[in-house]
């Protein structure tokens, strides 16, 4: 698939000596929703800031639709819309005025029809003459989104778009992102919320300590690392696992009441019937059993742990 952003050997070391990005290589495909997952301070915002021109890279190249972000910054930047993490707005301006400003800044002539549509889509039309400082936090975030979209970018960066946002706006935002993707816009979002990435993303990249760990299709990632667990609640507590069963991946809870069996989702034989037969042979009875699948969150935690 054609890549719309191509990052090669990207490095960023801050003046303080902090190495925020360490030899990043990453390709974002045209038209996809890419989620960048990582803990605080992993380098997510730095990576976005470099691509958008807010932070100067220490080394490496970034091409946006074939345009170098430094030597051909005009072409590169005019394709990008950025919704920052912080609610950074000009507080004394009206919503309409800041949108006109943003569109002009990105080299586009005024277009009231586009602005009106955007404001209506984001439920801001009634607030268009209000000063931004008078808006609620959620509304301010909508204004930032409108500002990022008003010049009709082909690529949209959403840096922690739903941090501190109520459920309704969160779902509105997800819908909006899907609509944008349907219109061919490439979306890169960073998030703490795993369910957000799970819900939205086509592909997921995990970043930690300034390095990109895994980049995979969401489903592949989940399949690859997804483990299922069968938990059996026993009638009588066990003191230890019988010798005959020690070659099974079984763990016994500390109180001896729960037996947990971990198995791979993709293996043809889960080994469960055999295990249950053997348990029966040893007169180990159970009163309850349930199975669970690891979520992206578990996968993420294990990935970040492995790296650090």
């Amino acid at each position: 698939m054609e890549s719309v952003i191509s990052i090669k050997n990207l490095n960023k070391t801050y003046g303080t000596g902090l190495r925020a990005l360490n030899n990043i290589n990453l390709d974002i495909r045209r038209g996809e929703i890419f989620a960048l997952l990582g803990p605080n301070g992993a380098g997510k915002t730095t990576l976005i800031s470099v691509i958008c021109g807010i932070v100067t890279p220490s080394g490496g190249t970034v091409l946006v639709d074939g345009h170098d972000i430094l030597s051909d910054f005009r072409a590169a930047r005019s394709k990008i819309g950025l919704v920052p993490q912080e609610l950074a707005n000009a507080p004394f301006e009206s919503v309409l005025a800041t949108l006109k400003f943003s569109r002009g800044l990105f080299g586009k002539p005024d277009n009231p029809a586009i602005i009106e549509k955007l404001l209506r889509d984001l439920s801001l039309w009634d607030k268009r003459h209000e000063k931004i400082m008078a808006l609620s936090g959620g509304m301010k975030r909508r204004v930032l989104i409108a500002k990022a979209l008003v010049h009709e970018p082909e690529i949209l960066f959403l840096d922690e778009p739903t941090a501190g946002v109520d459920v309704e706006l969160r779902h509105d935002m997800w819908d909006m992102v899907r609509d944008l993707r349907a219109n061919g816009v490439t979306i890169i979002l960073t998030t703490h919320y795993i369910d957000e990435a799970e819900e939205m993303a086509d592909r997921i990249g995990v970043i930690n300590n300034g390095e990109i760990g895994v980049v995979e299709d969401k489903t592949v990632l989940m399949n690859k690392l997804g483990k299922k667990q069968l938990t059996l609640t026993l009638q009588q507590p066990l003191s230890n696992i019988p010798n005959e069963l020690t070659n099974y991946p079984l763990t016994l809870s500390a109180d001896g009441n729960c037996l947990t069996y971990t198995f791979d989702v993709h293996q043809e034989h889960t080994g469960i019937p055999e295990l249950l037969r053997k348990l029966g042979k040893h007169d180990i009875d159970f009163k309850d059993l349930h199975s669970s699948e690891s979520s992206l969150e578990d996968i993420f935690v294990s990935l970040v742990k492995d790296k650090s």
């Binding site: 807010i54 072409a75 950074a88 800044l105």
Partner: peptide, 11 residues
């Protein structure tokens, strides 16, 4: 106010 990000990221 932080809105300088827009100026820096604009063409």
């Amino acid at each position: 106010s932080g809105s300088i990000y827009e100026l820096l990221s604009a063409p």
